[in-house]
Design a protein around this nucleic acid. Structure first.
Lengths: 243, 243
DNA sequence: GCTGACATATTGTCGGACAATATGTCAATT
DNA sequence: AATTGACATATTGTCCGACAATATGTCAGC
């Protein structure tokens, strides 16, 4: 029964993808470092033996991931993908997957207490000072909903940064963007300024004291408050997150 | 002292970015659903009043994030960004940020036990069956390094999927890709087949019994083993992860 | 119903073009 | 010496038109 040989579907990758991969590899492998300038589009086109249009498409592919950016608005420069770029791309994926507040909250329950705990080990004096400043500011703006939301988010970012753990920062990047509207709604609905301040204060104390368990515990309490906030405010805990 | 007025730098966004944002909004806002076909490049060019080249660049921008893909290899189709796409983009960011195995492990310690815990609440019978199959397979291939690595990774994915939490799945997507080589090295160096099997077995039992604490605990033990593996194998726990 | 032939639509790639804007140089001015 | 202006140059953003390769659709013929 000579079913004849079976051939693999030959993968004819479009040129712009090949070019994009070549550049990407050179970057990820460290051959080109962050901050380096890339050759001009015309040069790249010549080097790869394709047209400028093709090179441009390849560049766009990388530009979105935050790997490439433009200095000023001219030359191409290799960039470290910032938290914002990663956050944006993952959170848009979460939006499309119709992630609910509950799901998001569960992930936050895994990451935020962890951040508090790790920050106890690695927060520098400057970072503790930044946290102290943030607390002072929180006290001042407690009744201003918008300002309160801003410092609340900032506090969590400061704690996360104090861990000096880039993997953690990248993993929680999308949370920032998505929790933003929810926190805002809670704050407007319940004015929980006092509770927020108390929780932050305890986390801050724990970090200064290097008390991992306490930091973890209070961060957890804080997040449970968030959950109660969504439930009490009737904001639809099982509803998909709104962009 | 008329230092003259200060003006905001006026942001002249390039057309391809504008077009890309327009399409992105239409997708994220649900105006176009996943699975829908987009108009052809020529049509889009006409609608936006730009050239096809510009439209193409805009498309590339979205293509990388996994938002757009090609059906067959022709028409553009709106796609749900899969775990792979998200994983790839975040993990390349982690690589560039020189994330160490320790940092990565800390994140995994936040997410994997959580996955075990949540899976207890939501695993369906089919999913339990898949886990059982995976265990059986693990037993068979315990001495085959490559095969063992594959089922090990698959086990964790199955547990994560059993949580039915898309946010969690997306958050841990990069871990998959980055742990892969490390697990492989550990397995080759230490042949920890027995320990892996025991831990998986306990997690599986806990999930079947709905015992959240036990699932969390054993997943944690399992991850601590992973850490010990890297340390014992002298694989450089504080070294940047290798792509 | 399957096959093949043919027209059509769509993408991938090319080449060339031009305006707007940065960058670099150098002389003139203060 | 530092600033300004004039000018050439380089680079990007956008446009146009073109063509080959490949899917898709249609229709006759067996």
């Amino acid at each position: 029964m000579p079913t004849s040989v079976s051939f693999d579907r030959l993968a004819h990758q479009p040129a712009y993808k090949v070019v994009s991969e070549k550049i990407r590899n050179a970057i990820v492998s460290g051959e080109i470092a962050a901050g380096d300038l890339l050759p001009t589009e015309t040069d790249l086109a010549e080097q790869f033996g394709v047209t400028r249009s093709t090179v441009r498409e390849a560049i766009r592919l990388l530009e979105h991931g935050g790997i490439l950016g433009r200095a000023g608005r001219k030359r191409l420069v290799v960039t470290l993908p910032g938290m914002e770029a990663v956050g944006r791309s993952v959170s848009s994926a979460m939006l499309m997957h119709q992630v609910t507040y509950e799901e998001l909250w569960q992930v936050a329950m895994g990451l935020e207490p962890l951040a508090g705990k790790l920050a106890c080990l690695s927060a520098t004096d400057e970072e503790k000072q930044l946290l102290a400043d943030n607390l002072a500011l929180t006290e001042q703006v407690m009744d201003n909903h918008d300002a309160l939301l801003k410092v609340e988010i900032e506090f969590h970012n400061l704690v996360a940064e104090a861990t000096h753990n880039n993997a953690l920062l990248l993993a929680r990047a999308p949370l920032n963007e998505l929790f933003y509207p929810a926190w805002g709604a809670i704050i407007r609905a319940l004015s929980p300024g006092e509770r927020i301040l108390v929780a932050h204060q305890h986390v801050y104390d724990a970090i200064c004291a290097g008390d991992q368990d306490k930091a973890e515990e209070w961060m957890e309490k804080h997040m449970r408050d968030f959950r109660r906030g969504i439930e009490m405010g009737n904001l639809g805990f099982d509803q998909p997150v709104q962009g």
